[in-house]
Structure formats: C-alpha cells, structure tokens
C-alpha cells in the first residue's frame, strides 16, 4: 500500500516537474538593451524550417502524452489485470536483450545445420515478450519513463530553437546554449540509457524462467558509441553557433 502511494507521489511530482520545467519558451531575445529592435534577421524562414517545427510540435505532444499516460495506463493494467490472480492476462512489452541459439543443442535442428562453421546464432535486439509478472511490468515502465524524459528534454530544446528560427532569430546565444544542451542530452542519453536498459533487462529476466537447452536470453548493452559521437559533433556545432552569435551581436552593435 505504501509502495503504491509512494509511486503515485513520484508520478505527481514528475507531472508537476514536466509542466513547470518544460514550459514552451519561444524567444528570449537579446539580453542587451537597445539592440533587440534590429535583432530579427532579414531572411525568411524556409518551408523546411516550418515543416520541422510542426513535426517537432507533434512529436512533443505525443511524447508528453506518452510520458504522462504510461504510468497511469500501467497502473490501471497492473491493478485490473494482475490483481485478478489468473494467468489468462499478460502484457506485451519489449526490452533490449541478447539472444543466443545453439543449434547443435537443439536436437531436432542438429541434423539440419549446414553451411555454418559454428552452430551458434546470436545477436542483440529488442525482444518482445508477454509477461505475467507485475514486477517486470513496473520495471518496463520505469525504464521507458527514463528514456522518455531524455527524449522530452531534447525535444524541448529543439522546439525552442526552431520556434526562434521560424521568427528569423538564427544567431542568438540562446540557440547556441540550446544546441549545447541537446549535445549534452544526446551524449548522456547514449551513456545512461544503455546502462538503465541493461539493468532493467537483468531485473526483467530475473523474473522470467524457462528451460530450453540451447537457447539463452541475456541482458545486453546497446551500443551508444555512434550517439555519443553525434553528441560531440553537436557540442562542436554549438561552439560554432556561439561564435556566430557573438559576431552577429558585435555587428549589430556597430553604429
């Protein structure tokens, strides 16, 4: 009972945090008085900018709804389905796992294994499974909530940036700061999310038992190397954008 109350409290705090912190801030403008008047750049935003802005808006509301609704729907499912006590209900979910199939151990397959030097097929991917365990379901929700928070943070920064791009504000220190935040979010997301996925997957597998010789499912790390590299590139870009904003401000302040 206390655990449920605690979870509800966490959820309410999360919802308040989302509403307060992720409030849409379009244009902060320049912090230098007297220069604001001339700050809007003359070039018109192109259609692609508007299109991306619209897409980001849709994605933002979609992911916000997902973040808020997931614990609610999850709670309803867990209370409604799992409390019935029967095994007739299950929840379909997915997790990043490694899978290894030893064909030689599968007696029926052994005779048909040809063209392989080793009879082992393995890989890491998102595996779908229908769980009967409420714990697994809660872990799945928690892991996905963390991932959604990272996505929301990145989307928030991108939305703010594109809102300023649509109003012809390109080279501003705010946008450089937003790019930097996106870069940091991409890097930390690609480091933290695989770790959470790994430990989440491990906890999920602890609750699932099956005995099939030759088939092994294990928690796996998702390679975030490319994402980290992309984040570093965005950080470098943010430095360039900051420099451009400084030059632009200087040019604006030249009489």
């Amino acid at each position: 009972m206390y655990a449920e109350l605690f979870l509800i409290l966490i959820f309410i705090s999360l919802a308040i945090f989302l509403v307060r912190h992720f409030r849409h801030k379009p244009n902060a403008g320049s912090n230098e008085p007297g220069i604001d008047i001339d700050l809007a750049q003359t070039a018109k935003p192109n259609k692609i900018t508007r299109l991306v802005k619209g897409y980001l808006d849709v994605m933002w509301y979609l992911f916000l709804a997902l973040t808020v609704l997931m614990p609610i729907v999850g709670g309803v499912i867990s209370v409604g389905y799992f409390s019935e006590g029967g095994n007739q209900w299950g929840v379909d979910l997915n997790a990043f796992m490694g899978i290894e199939i030893d064909l030689e151990q599968l007696t029926d397959m052994a005779a048909n294994t040809e063209g392989l030097r080793s009879g082992v097929i393995s890989g890491k991917t998102l595996l779908n499974f229908e769980t009967l365990s409420v714990t697994v379901w809660y872990i799945f929700i928690a892991v996905n909530e963390v991932m959604l928070l990272f996505v929301l943070y990145g989307l928030k920064q991108m939305r703010d940036m594109f809102a300023s791009l649509v109003t012809n504000m390109y080279f501003t220190l705010e946008n450089a700061g937003r790019l930097k935040k996106i870069g940091i979010a991409v890097i930390s997301g690609n480091i933290i999310i695989p770790i959470i996925q790994y430990f989440g997957g491990r906890m999920m597998l602890d609750d699932i038992t099956f005995n099939l010789p030759g088939v092994e499912i294990y928690p796996a790390f998702q390679n975030g190397g490319t994402g980290v590299f992309l984040g570093l590139l965005i950080l470098v870009l943010s430095g360039i954008a900051r420099e451009a904003a400084n030059i632009y401000q200087e040019q604006l302040g030249t009489i």
Partner: peptide, 15 residues
C-alpha cells in the same frame, strides 16, 4: 534609435 544607442554607451563599435 542608433544615435540613442551610441549616446547611452550601448554600442559595441563605431564605423
């Protein structure tokens, strides 16, 4: 407006 910026000492540079 620009002269006012100059007068207030808010200009960064002068041509």
């Amino acid at each position: 407006a620009n002269l006012s910026i100059l007068k207030q000492g808010k200009a960064r540079a002068i041509r």
